[in-house]
Design a protein around this nucleic acid. Structure first.
Lengths: 105, 105
DNA sequence: GTATTCTACAACCAAATGGTTGTAGATCAG
DNA sequence: CTGATCTACAACCATTTGGTTGTAGAATAC
């Protein structure tokens, strides 16, 4: 996973509408227009949000007839969580090191 | 935690320089100029990155003499991880529900 | 066939982002 | 006191972002 991939991942999650889309398509299936109906913005705007999520691998799009079905992509989410786990692991190591130093002294 | 807070959190993590700053200040202590020395950009640019991290509660800044010491803020990281855990939990529930349906049929 | 629906994509716009330089205020060293 | 260092902040610039409208192509419905 490149730095640019991580950029895209977090950037995609930094918008409330996009996070809502992720939640919804994780639970159920939605067409792009089905999603667009949920928000007070144009179809094209929602289309762009979905495109951002696809680029970030948080969501997939699959053609079904004239519709485009959007589904959650578990891998993307898992990668994001694992990344933050790593950050936390670094923190925990630091906390342990400090505890060790205090124990020594 | 408001939606705007979550926006700030993920937006702050969507830049490679800022993620690197988070990693470094989680392990050790750095002044703003100490951080600035690490990157091929101006002091002012790094100053702005730190400000973004402070606003996102991923980092704290504390004055010490003429320096400003930057430290990691565990709470911010933990909140981010917990958020992604929630998303994953939703996914897991869905997976279970699907498993149940398959078991019924 | 025609009309409707769903999508794609271009062009445009205002605001935010990520960078720069420059100026000025504190603090420390000699 | 003087000079060097660290920080803050304003002004500016190019690019990206998040939204809009409009046009056009596929697939479905009748």
């Amino acid at each position: 996973m490149s730095e640019a991939d991580v950029d895209r991942l977090f950037q995609a999650l930094s918008d409330a509408t996009r996070r809502d889309i992720v939640r919804r398509v994780t639970v159920g299936e939605y067409s792009v227009s089905g999603l667009a109906a949920l928000y007070a913005m144009s179809f094209a705007a929602v289309q762009k949000h979905v495109a951002v999520l696809v680029r970030a691998s948080l969501v997939t799009k699959e053609k079904r007839g004239r519709e485009q079905i959007v589904r959650g992509n578990h891998e993307g989410l898992e990668k994001a969580r694992r990344l933050l786990d790593e950050y936390e692991a670094i923190w925990r190591q630091r906390a342990e090191r400090i505890a060790d130093i205090l124990a020594e002294g």
